[in-house]
Nucleic acid binder design. Structure first.
Length: 153
DNA sequence: GCCAACGTTGGC
DNA sequence: GCCAACGTTGGC
């Protein structure tokens, strides 16, 4: 059964435009350093799952594109790169701690902003709207997915 | 820049 | 295993 996800990216790191400009509009979702988010990628995500591409830590946070999971989870190479801001000296080559998936942008949308999302009665339980939510990858219920897509037409 | 929320670390 | 201290996220 196909699942749905919301994945946060800081546009100063990887924006939806940046992803669209990449080969096949596909980017490796590098830099996840939270176990819960990692476990979603490792244990629950499957190729072709739906992804809401979300811009965080920016002037107008919101959903800016529709994407899909384009690979199974594999080792995030940045954890072994001392030059990378995502370097993790505690992770060992023979037991990598961090994984990523490839994400392919299917369509850039208008920015469906946080205030708009909050105003939607159907979306009251959307995880990203919870106070204090910091998780960079969150599951999205099918009904929430449908409600959001209907707002992006 | 502030601060709430929450994850991680490390002493005990 | 507890929990205080600290670090990070991310909206505002």
């Amino acid at each position: 059964m196909k699942k749905f996800w919301l994945m946060k990216s800081e546009p100063s790191e990887v924006s939806v435009d940046h992803a669209l400009a990449a080969p096949k509009a596909t980017v490796p979702w590098t830099g996840v350093r939270n176990y819960q988010a990692r476990n979603f990628m490792r244990d629950a995500m499957q190729i072709d799952d739906g992804v809401l591409f979300y811009h965080s830590s920016c002037a107008v946070p919101g959903i800016v594109g529709i994407a899909r999971v384009a690979s199974a989870a594999y080792t995030d190479p940045t954890q072994f790169d001392p030059q990378s801001p995502y370097y993790d000296p505690a992770s060992k080559q023979n037991a990598p701690r961090w994984l990523l998936v490839d994400v392919q942008v299917l369509r850039k949308t208008r920015n469906l902003t946080l205030p708009e999302l909050r105003a939607e009665a159907q979306l009251q339980d959307l995880i990203v709207l919870r106070k204090g939510n910091r998780l960079s990858i969150t599951p999205v219920e099918p009904l929430h997915w449908e409600a959001i897509l209907s707002r992006l037409v």
